[in-house]
Design a binder for these strands. Structure first.
Lengths: 195, 195, 195, 195
DNA sequence: CATGAATGAGTTTTCATTCAT
DNA sequence: TATGAATGAAAACTCATTCAT
């Protein structure tokens, strides 16, 4: 009715669209998803998408940026900066798993598709938001002789890759994601990188 | 000149098409790749693809099956069946890396895209070709108390995921794939799974 | 303006498409007609056809069913069930001719092309709608000794064929369809079948 | 080996092609038939057709002219010029039926499709070859007061149309073509046109 | 002469985007 | 502001015709 509720209504609709797009893109990728399909899932008309986003590419970039930032935030907020490396790693892994549980589609979207061809400048730059803190953690842990003195990006690739591998196996029904499983995985991966 | 060279010419052209399709699919995925784009890369007219394949889907399935089989073969041929688990794991990892070096696009195609929506029956069944031997290795190693007593599919997800993570990091220019790097990664991952 | 006029607008457009398709198919047959040609005649873009019909085949089947039903209806409505056979035959023939005059393209489409290869189940079943009443009329007339005791389907083939022959001759400009002509033809054909 | 056998071989191959084309066109019409389909039926390569015919249209025109002429010939050769009209009509009908039995595909091709759009000048002119004699017969019969004094082209349309109707019913399995049937039909049609 | 692989124009169909309502 | 019908450019695919072998 008033400006406020209109704005809220709009924000809400934008959320619906992004949520619908996330589901669709997570499942079939960017090129495998049609705009009408997103609109239908979102419960709006196809034309309405274009009041909120310039184009299909704009939607995928908005999603990418939103979830990369949310993901990075989830990893960093209240990170136990002073704790010993073993503790920090456990904490990081736990955050990864919690995020995976809370936003499974977001991770499927972010990690299980190759986005480069349609990402814009902003999206491409955002990767460092996640990488930076991870590198910082490893550098510190290496300085404390707690982690193998290998290139941080290699260690990140191993741990991050293993995490994605677990997600994929869960999506394909090969394993169940439970506390046992994720704890065991964490233990393995700490062995992998610890000095 | 004769039947032989004609047959060779055709087989060669089919190879060209598959090679072109591999490059395109590895880069932009199935839905992001147009048939004319494949044809152009292959140096033939668009209509020519349809003399060799029924449809775009037939191409992606042929590729999937070919490379899954080739990959499985590369992992298994002359596998040191009697060697100790540590040796076997090193051998497996080395085969993965050699294959990655020899056929980087094949792995990008196989591992970095989600194929399920357009795979046919045959393609879907073929995954076990790779999984089976990996499970067998792990089961044996676990019986010898050399590897942690965790679900084999979890260990596979970790190691395979880490491998894909390394590939992805290399593709994105974050790390260089050299003997140092791959040896280090192998060492880490053995630590991850060994008892 | 409101829902009503929108619905009407759509129904109208569907009519336009069917009308355009009828003209094209009547003239050049199904395979000789392109979708853009139909669209142009209908005054819409090619893509628009696919908002109303699943495919080109769906259009031809819709047309076939619509006109078969309309034709059957025109033959049967208010049929003089109690009249003597001579009267009934005259009435049937008159209905045929009136229909031919009112919907010349519909009859060209229905009768002057061989549709079987692309007709769906529903279309194939619909033929009996027209045949049934004709057989019933003949059976009754034969029971009253008014018509030759020959297989009804043969008599139908003769009369119906002759009717189509007259249509074809008219289309080709060999004869003019006027009351004289059609009355004369009716007279001839009654002689042909009467006992 | 020598010129003669080569010429014979060619003529034979041309026959094969025309026969194959007849079968295909009779069944699915001109636009519904592909050149490779004709070639396969003829047992030659697709390219070979173009050594014998300029184009697909040239084939259909050659077929049309050949069979129209053959048909006209079959109707006219040894026609009992002096016989009474009743006898002549019976003879004509018998020739129609014999031709239908000997060359069912030719009649399906000629009569059950609308050829005008792709016929060339020569083909279009040839229709009179058949029509002329029929008109002559009717004119004479009318002069002898044996046949109704209606426009000859109307009578032709009726009889010819009825004939085609019988062919069509036979093709669709509604009636069986046997001596009984064709004699009965002849009798009916004579009643239709006789004075 | 015969072949059939190759072509590319033309066909059916899809879909991101626009715009009248 | 929301709609969804309409668009038309581009996609997948077909096929008459050509031409190197």
């Amino acid at each position: 009715m008033n400006i406020h509720s209109r704005v809220d209504g709009q924000a809400e609709k934008k959320e619906q669209i992004l949520e619908a797009a996330l589901e669709a893109f997570a499942d079939r990728g960017f090129h495998g998803t049609t705009v009408p399909a997103i609109a239908e899932r979102a419960g709006v008309a196809a034309g309405t998408l274009y009041r909120y986003f310039e184009s299909k590419e704009a939607i995928v970039n908005a999603l990418y940026q939103h979830w990369k930032r949310t993901f990075a935030g989830a990893l960093m907020v209240d990170f136990p900066a002073g704790a010993p490396p073993r503790e920090q790693f456990r904490s990081l892994w736990e955050r990864l798993c919690r995020f995976a549980e809370a936003h499974p589609l977001a991770l499927q979207f972010l990690e299980l598709h190759h986005h480069a061809p349609y990402l814009d400048e902003t999206s491409r730059r955002i990767d460092d938001t996640v990488l930076g803190p991870a590198r910082a953690f490893l550098a510190a842990a290496q300085r404390q002789m707690a982690v193998k003195p290998l290139p941080p990006d290699l260690l990140i690739a191993l741990v991050h890759g293993a995490f994605v591998g677990v997600l994929r196996a869960a999506r394909d029904g090969l394993i169940q994601l439970g506390k046992d499983t994720t704890d065991a995985a964490e233990s393995c991966l700490w062995e992998a990188i610890r000095r």
